[in-house]
Simulated assay, not measured.
Amino acid sequence: METMMEEEIRILFAKTSAKMRKDYADSLREVNIYVGQDHLLWQLWRKDGATQTELSELMGCEPPTLTNMVKKLEAYGLVTRKKDASDARVTRVFLTEKGSALEYPIEEIWRNHQKKMLNGISEEDRLTLKRLLLQIDNNLKI
Rank of each mutant, 00 (worst) to 15 (best):
M117V: 02
E108F: 04
S86L: 14
I106R: 01
A75N: 07
N68D: 09
N119T: 08
K71H: 07
Q114Y: 13
L78N: 01
A88H: 12
M117P: 00
L118G: 01
D125S: 13
R111V: 03
A101Y: 01
K115H: 04
D84A: 05
D84T: 05
S100C: 06
E124Y: 15
P105C: 06
A101E: 08
T128W: 12
R111G: 00
A85S: 10
K115M: 03
S86M: 11
H113D: 05
E97N: 08
R92K: 14
L95W: 05
S86F: 13
T128P: 01
E123L: 12
M69L: 05
F94P: 11
L127H: 12
S100P: 00
K72L: 11
K116I: 02
K116F: 09
L102R: 00
E74K: 12
Y104L: 06
E97Y: 06
L118F: 07
L127Q: 14
E103N: 08
S122P: 02
E107D: 06
G120N: 05
L118D: 03
N68Y: 13
E107Q: 08
M117N: 01
K98I: 00
G77A: 05
D84N: 13
R81M: 14
L95F: 05
A88M: 08
K98A: 14
N119V: 02
G77S: 05
R92V: 08
D125G: 05
R81D: 03
V93N: 04
A75R: 15
D87K: 10
K116C: 04
D87N: 14
V79H: 00
S100F: 09
E97Q: 10
D125A: 11
E97H: 09
K116S: 10
A101D: 08
L129Q: 07
I109P: 00
W110K: 05
V79M: 00
